[in-house]
Design a protein around this nucleic acid. Structure first.
Lengths: 258, 258
DNA sequence: TTCTTTTTTTGATTTTAATCAAGGTTAAGC
DNA sequence: GCTTAACCTTGATTAAAATCAAAAAAAGAA
């Protein structure tokens, strides 16, 4: 009677092993997958393929036909849009557990590029949409995730439309400090809402940050320098940030001062 | 045998008459309601109440508990967010057929105010969410609507983050010119995609426009004056706009010139 | 109607962040 | 390791939109 479940999951047949990819995933309790039981995960496994990308690779090209949707397993991606003359906006950064590509349009409306090494789970869009019809709780979960995205998009509009460069950077640093990247297993939970870290890596370049905040890289650089001089943050190398005075950063982010 | 359907819908009982509010709605083929059959519309009718607002009334207060959701029947609304010091952003304008308030958060994250006289259909949020579980096609429809909203939000982020004032105004005018406001009945269709009008009303104030485009009212006013002087548009009074050179306006909106 | 208030337009000035331009760092390739 | 290229920071200048200020136009009240 020892570990009967384990036996039945791995079994002797290689077929069963294949169907268990999703069951054995570190993130099976996160994200979209978190709402599914073992049998449903097996269905998902069958239509899923893992794909790996290097930093700077493009996963999705803006305007391409939307054939696939992706769930991020590991690594960080950016969503970008371009104007004809080359001006760029980063509309968001994607973290493990995030879902991308399901737009209900026939073409993608943004590019998706790897910021770090990335592992994604790729699903044929039409198959996943069919699955949505069969598993209502999947659709509910997706609706909830989209609702979150929409709220974040509105916050970002406020940032871009009405906040000063200092306020934008402060908001950004606080936001990133609250994201979890570790791939620890465990019961379902949100990608935010862990207690925030006061030390963290900025995986993206200054250019990515400026295109996300609607600024130039010079302004981003100068503003970070100002924060450092004011004792609000310290930096180690280019990527590592330490928040020294979170309260002040929060005040700045909310527009309560400068 | 004349009009048997009409008879069965109105019947003799006042109860049946009450349940037919949604069935007899001008917009029953639009929006969320468009996916429902008569019986389902009756269920919707039972939980729905019409509500009327004057211009400038507030329908939803930012941060209030999200008790209701709304479908716009007539009129135009704006979604607004405020910073502590009073800076304001209009995140969008809502037109008939638009849906608002279903955020899957316990509190609203924006205010909703009437720009014109408005008629809305109000639903208790919890009841509507329960109905979503029962009628999967409702959830699908909502998912599609949200997906559209998300795409629009990303376009607006590009506008706010990377476009010049002229480009913002051009994009805005083209966008408004493509919206339909008329309350004609007919089979389901999108709120956009009619052939665009070259003459239309701007129902909102210059302040609303500037808070939507991340500009000041002075810049909005000056930019409209410039367009007029360049023969791209003409104005009649404050609200009426005529597009005289749509092609040029499109070039400007896309950043192909100035 | 006239008077008042609100909204919009126009003009002058200031401020801010973009642009232009080097110089430093860090990372990557050989 | 060294060399080169990419990335980032800092400084000087410019340009663009915000701000400040006032006049004009429209809407609303009496």
């Amino acid at each position: 009677m020892d570990k009967p479940q384990f036996d039945s999951e791995l079994g002797a047949s290689p077929v069963v092993r294949t169907e268990s990819i999703c069951r054995n995933c570190d993130r099976r309790f996160d994200s979209l997958c978190g709402v599914l039981n073992c049998d449903e995960l097996d269905i998902l496994s069958e239509m899923m393929e893992h794909q790996f990308f290097e930093a700077k690779d493009t996963i999705i090209y803006e305007e391409d036909e939307a054939k696939n949707v992706y769930n991020i397993a590991e690594g960080i991606l950016r969503l970008t849009k371009l104007l004809p003359d080359g001006r760029r906006l980063v509309t968001g950064f994607l973290y493990p557990g995030d879902f991308v590509g399901l737009a209900f349009h026939d073409n993608y409306s943004y590019s998706v590029e790897a910021v770090t090494e990335v592992k994604v789970c790729r699903f044929p869009r039409l198959k996943l949409e069919a699955l949505l019809k069969e598993i209502p709780k999947l659709e509910s979960k997706l609706l909830g995730m989209m609702s979150n995205e929409l709220k974040e998009a509105q916050d970002q509009m406020m940032l871009l439309g009405r906040k000063s460069p200092k306020e934008r950077l402060a908001s950004f640093l606080l936001n990133i400090s609250q994201r979890k990247i570790e791939k620890s297993a465990g019961p379902a939970r949100d990608k935010l809402l862990d207690k925030p870290n006061n030390s963290f890596e900025l995986p993206m370049s200054r250019m990515d940050i400026s295109d996300y905040l609607g600024l130039t890289i010079e302004t981003v650089s100068r503003t970070l320098t100002t924060f450092t001089k004011n004792g609000i943050i310290s930096t180690e190398g280019r990527k590592k940030i330490n928040i020294l005075n979170r309260e002040k950063l929060e005040d700045i982010a909310d527009g309560d001062l400068a």
